[in-house]
Design a protein around this nucleic acid. Structure first.
Length: 448
DNA sequence: TTTTGAGTTGTTCGA
DNA sequence: GTCGAACAACTCAAA
């Protein structure tokens, strides 16, 4: 009896999954996940933990039939297809630099055995490469892209597959053990993603346009990791948002558009995940990571808003977006360390670490990317904290040394009486001085 | 075809 | 204390 393989990657869900629907046109389907050492190794505990939990959730929703194999997909996927006697292997297309190379190699190997690799859908509402200017070239600026992206539209979410027999006629090596870590993770998996979304939609979306900038409030959706693993498809969220209007829903659509924009940029310029998108910055002078870098990594810079963000990252594998911008600006413009170091650190520690969004977010902060922040836009880590964490609740939550400082005074411990923030370091640098230094380096680059 | 205005997320300085 | 200007250069779309 013919069977097909559904190779899950970043689409760990059953609903709104066109590739799965295609795979389920056969009477029997093998649900496969391949644990690729090239991705598992650098992922870091937060992403590994999330993935393991998400695989357990997917396995449960498949009635325990998920097949997990360990190894290089280039050899593992063709082997599984042959062991199962599969007529085809189905995937959602991956548009990242590594994923594209991997899928082409897998496709080549499969074709030698007469098995087609069939791509249906992608992790995006509009596949990267589809939105182009009238002259056929890609957008380099967000706002025009987002308008064209909205005009482009997307298909309605399809229904989940009906009666399907998932089988495991091949060896199952099992889901790996979760890393031994103290990370605090929220509920994981498709069901958790949908519950998280509906709670956010009903309770927070209305105020999202303003509250999303407030790390002391739970104003963001926290959907990023769910989206990264494809526990929910952005199309599902967009379809839900289509019934709503107002500044909140509109702001959320724009955030989804950013995710798609950066995926599109990386599709057209894979090298921009490693190098400055704006080539003229290759001549920019950066410092090698030193003691300041270590203080930044550990959340011990003496700037409460920066340290709170870094400690949130280390304890939760996540950081509020406003704070990501502030710590990124601090590393690049106060410590003069290039964005690649920060981006790598984030990718190791974030549970939602997405190469395109992460690295281009960093490039935005560094002024080297698309829609680059003007070079003179240097975040002041203290005034950012006072503005977006006005009562100091966020910094006290993540920096216990500051808990003796009431209200907004927690943002300026150096003004408090000696001994009121025991164990908390003095600022490692003078922001006004380093701001001028950063502006000087940009000015030197401009004069060349 | 050319021109023009706008463009995620800010800060500082001086009047 | 408040407020406007200045801080580039370039992409894109609309007029």
């Amino acid at each position: 009896m013919p069977c097909r393989v559904m190779w899950f990657r970043r689409d760990l869900r059953l609903r709104d999954n066109p590739a799965l629907l295609e795979a389920c046109t056969a009477p029997r389907t093998v649900a496969l996940f391949v644990l690729d050492p090239a991705l598992w190794g650098p992922a870091g505990d937060a992403r590994r933990s999330w993935l393991v939990r998400s695989l357990h959730a997917l396995d449960a929703s498949l009635g325990g039939t998920l097949v997990v194999r360990h190894g290089d997909p280039r050899t593992v996927v063709p082997h599984v297809a042959r062991e199962a006697g599969a007529a085809a292997v189905h995937i959602a297309a991956d548009y990242g630099p590594y994923g594209r190379r991997r899928d082409e190699a897998v496709e080549k190997a499969l074709t030698e055995w007469g098995v087609p690799l069939i791509r249906t859908g992608s992790p995006y509402a509009v596949a990267p490469g589809r939105v182009v200017k009238d002259d056929g070239t890609p957008y380099r600026v967000f706002t025009p892209f987002s308008h064209a992206w909205r005009r482009h539209g997307w298909r309605e979410p399809p229904d989940p597959p009906g009666e399907v027999e998932f089988v495991e006629p091949v060896l199952d090596e099992g889901i790996p053990a979760e890393p031994d870590t103290d990370l605090e993770l929220p509920p994981v998996g498709e069901q958790a993603a949908l519950e998280r979304w509906s709670a956010f939609r009903d309770e927070r979306l209305g105020d999202y346009a303003t509250d999303r900038d407030r790390p002391d409030l739970a104003g963001t959706s926290s959907m990023s990791a769910h989206l990264k693993y494809g526990e929910v498809h952005p199309r599902t969220l967009l379809a839900d948002l289509a019934t709503l209007s107002g500044p909140g829903p509109d702001a959320y659509r724009t955030e989804l558009a950013w995710r798609e924009f950066y995926a599109d940029v990386v599709f057209h310029s894979p090298v921009s995940t490693r190098e400055h998108y704006r080539r003229e910055f290759t001549a920019m002078r950066f410092d090698e990571p030193g003691t300041g870098w270590l203080a930044w990594c550990e959340g011990r810079t003496g700037f409460p808003f920066v340290d709170a963000g870094m400690r949130q990252l280390l304890t939760e594998g996540w950081m509020h977006n406003r704070v990501r911008m502030v710590v990124a600006s601090f590393l690049v413009k106060d410590l003069h360390v290039s964005w690649q170091h920060g981006a790598r650190f984030f990718m190791r520690h974030l549970r939602d670490g997405d190469l395109a969004s992460n690295n281009h977010g960093w490039q935005w902060a560094a002024g080297t990317g698309t829609d680059a922040a003007p070079y003179f836009r240097v975040f002041n880590p203290v005034s950012q904290g006072l503005t977006f964490d006005p009562d100091g609740d966020y910094v006290r939550r993540y920096v216990p040394e500051l808990r003796g400082l009431p209200g907004r005074s927690a943002h300026e411990p150096w003004k408090a009486p000696a001994g009121s923030a025991p164990g908390y370091p003095a600022p490692i640098l003078d922001h006004a001085v380093e701001r001028r230094e950063a502006l000087g380096r940009y000015e030197a680059l401009r004069r060349r």
